[in-house]
Design a protein around this nucleic acid. Sequence first.
DNA 1: TGTACATCAGTGAACGCGCGTTCACTGATGTAC
DNA 2: TGTACATCAGTGAACGCGCGTTCACTGATGTAC
Lengths: 222, 222
Amino acid sequence: MADHGDTGTQTPRERYRAQVQEEIKKHAWEQMAVAGASALSLNAIAKQMGMSGPALYRYFAGRDELITELIRDAYRSLADTFRAASETVGTGEPGLAVLAHALRGWALADPQRYFLVYGTPVPGYHAPDDITVIASENMVMMLDACAELPSDGPVTSFEAHIEGLGSRWADGHAAPPVALRRALAFWTRLHGVLSLELAGHFNGMGFDPALLFAAELDDLLR
Amino acid sequence: MADHGDTGTQTPRERYRAQVQEEIKKHAWEQMAVAGASALSLNAIAKQMGMSGPALYRYFAGRDELITELIRDAYRSLADTFRAASETVGTGEPGLAVLAHALRGWALADPQRYFLVYGTPVPGYHAPDDITVIASENMVMMLDACAELPSDGPVTSFEAHIEGLGSRWADGHAAPPVALRRALAFWTRLHGVLSLELAGHFNGMGFDPALLFAAELDDLLR
DNA sequence: TGTACATCAGTGAACGCGCGTTCACTGATGTAC
DNA sequence: TGTACATCAGTGAACGCGCGTTCACTGATGTAC
């Protein structure tokens, strides 16, 4: 989506390679949307593209690498969405609200992508370091949005707990405990609503999930 | 875990059948814990039990039925846990807190079981009606615990939205909007913390997830 | 108590299938002189 | 501009594998007289 990797001038071959690689991913996402992440099959993707199975090995070392690449893209996509949203500040609306709506839009746009990031983990799998880095970038953006909010009220026991950790936080990003507490609430509460909504657990309950989301966001901005 | 199905006197054969059926499920859960739900294989279970693959067809019509049965058991297990917890009321602790700790204990006891209920949904799958019934039983227990809490404060716009629905709620269980709002917050917030914790998203962040859970619970009881 | 029969758990062979992956190859595209 | 060579995308055959599931069967357990 955004410009990542070598952005220099490309030879026609490189351009073609990148193009086919993108198309493979596109079909992979479509397949995931239909049958879930675990059902992703290289041969099926190839067939859908009118190619033979082994051809895909020109573009990915194997199934695992493809999936890892999709996960990486998903994290990057969320980071890009957050970053783009962050740049529309100063319009009166608090930064947290902007991030919240960006998150919701991103989640609804592709539920399987959301679940690939925040859904059921595969017991064996461990994400590469660069993905972890993007994940903490996202956390930092949430933190920054929280830090600019007014912080009144007494210090809670959880904030005291955080204080006691000596702020050994990702990137050495020193955030006040109240901001971290708020960022965690932001993250967990909105994820709680979104994941249950996307999984269909609110079906048949009548209410509008968007309004529940808005209500939770209101509570966070209180 | 609890007594479900025919509890009448059993012939030795029936007893044996039930016993083997349970053992199959036990191995199924173990296998899921190792490789996730999608990797569940009848042949692998049979091999682990020292049986041949086709033998399992005496106990389950096929793979899909086994999985559905596991999902059903998971929902029932949570319902039983909630019910057992509800019966220990009156000790000063609010019912919601009791339910919360029961939920957390149940989730930590078997993360894969938690994710089978609340994790990434399989795009095609639709749960049978009796499972939906158990799910709404769980919701009702949360609702009841919320209904007994003092409800002060002004009516929020989300509560007005619920009011406007005319309470067309599962089982015709008429709950005041403020209780439903609170039950939804209870559910989504605790799920938010638990699912991110179990998925390992808090790893390396230093703080104790149990304390975050407790902090969120405190907010709900406020 | 003993015998004849029915029930049913479990086996082993076999089916077709789709998977990930390798390999030697063809043919087109790009590069160097 | 034209020719010789290198690069590389894609093919088709083949590999071994494990899967879910069926089928005809054996042998043990339970039942009826």
